[in-house]
Design a protein around this nucleic acid. Structure first.
Lengths: 216, 216
DNA sequence: TATTTTTTTTAGACTTGTCTAAATTAATTA
DNA sequence: TAATTAATTTAGACAAGTCTAAAAAAAATA
């Protein structure tokens, strides 16, 4: 249907659009690991196919069919990640690269069966929502732990940084998804946070707090 | 590591070499769905990389490293087929195309975990042996049902034709892998076979018999 | 063995996706 | 608003893999 490469561009644009109004050439180049000149070429092609809205120098948005494809890729990526962690017992910091390949397996029947096989999970191992077969997903309103106030309580629901280093840090300190935590202190000096769950106390930096997404 | 395309050529050569001494340019073209001229180009590249033994006009064989890669692809293909049938409940005539894509997912750790997840199966849904992680497989000596004599008994162990049409025919007539059958009659007129298992009688053509592989 | 047929290879071109370098447009700052 | 800087696009080239048409080699046949 669409090439591996086209799918990656659409996915990258989709993720960028979650943060900003329109995705720029340079942003897309950074996200796809290519150069701006290559991006311009591809944008023309995607616009030709009516998958993006593109006007020179103006950045891009996805058309409905472009977004449908992008969401389909995201669905596959997250379902495969869930499979790798839940069924094959990989750790959550090990699955990204594999899912980057698996998300391009074309069969939608396959992905629907995989979804059912796992009991239609709503979230992937990093807490990101998994779109259903119609592209709908459970978009919870999450906020960075950085913005929690003293004595506020919430549940760790997702992570904003998917790097193995960050995930391994959380794994080691036991700050994992699903934990309910309370802010017991905001350090005056560096504004680091002290968190508490029922069992332990965690002293986390602002950088770590920024990447912990909390359901209040 | 190696491109999708290179892997497909090596796999095609591997399968051809199971039937003949050396694989020819035209055979490879037919197997890969390309033209002879394209094959020649690729053979040069694979020879350059020491994955095949190639001399102009002489056909090719696989080097040890070429064979190792090919067997790895076959392993992946057959394990994914097993997964699709055993876990996701696809029918045996539905899985080939999906496995053609899945066999190129690069991670060997993934395939090893999948292997374990399924309990290290020895055969795929079509009865073909699955290489283990060292490339070794259970190569049973099978013979075509065409060569069975009257009153001879054996077990249907694999199929030589993987086309959906043939597989669906077998499914419908209940001539499935694992069945023990006996030849009760060889029709004089057209040499068609009459088979029997404990429950039913099957009247099969020579064409069908040719593609049923029997463990005597 | 000479000729014909088949197979394989070479030559040159095309497509997809990429790049660098240069040109253009937009944005920022003085 | 003019000048500078940053972002984007264009132009031209390259690599991988494919093709068609023509040439060369091998195999088959007379």
């Amino acid at each position: 249907m669409h090439s591996f490469t086209e799918e990656n561009y659409l996915k990258a644009i989709f993720h960028l659009l979650l943060k900003t109004q329109s995705a720029t050439t340079n942003e897309i180049a950074a996200a796809t690991g290519t150069k701006a000149a290559s991006v311009t070429d591809m944008l023309k092609k995607l616009a030709e196919k009516k998958l993006i809205n593109y006007a020179r120098y103006q950045g891009v948005t996805l058309t409905d069919s472009g977004e449908r494809i992008a969401v389909g890729i995201v669905r596959k990526h997250r379902l495969w990640e869930h499979f790798l962690v839940d069924k094959l017992k990989f750790k959550w910091d090990e699955v990204h690269e594999m899912a980057e390949e698996l998300e391009h397996i074309s069969s939608t029947e396959l992905i629907n069966r995989l979804d059912e096989f796992m009991g239609r999970p709503q979230f992937d191992p990093h807490g990101d929502p998994i779109p259903d077969c119609n592209g709908r997903m459970n978009n919870q309103h999450l906020q960075s732990a950085l913005h929690l106030k003293k004595d506020q309580t919430g549940k760790i629901a997702a992570v904003a940084d998917h790097s193995p280093a960050f995930l391994q840090y959380l794994e080691k300190t036991q700050l994992t998804i699903g934990q309910t935590i309370t802010v017991t202190e905001l350090t005056d000096y560096d504004m680091a946070l002290v968190l508490n769950n029922s069992q332990n106390e965690f002293n986390i930096s602002r950088e770590v707090a920024k990447n912990l997404l909390i359901l209040v």
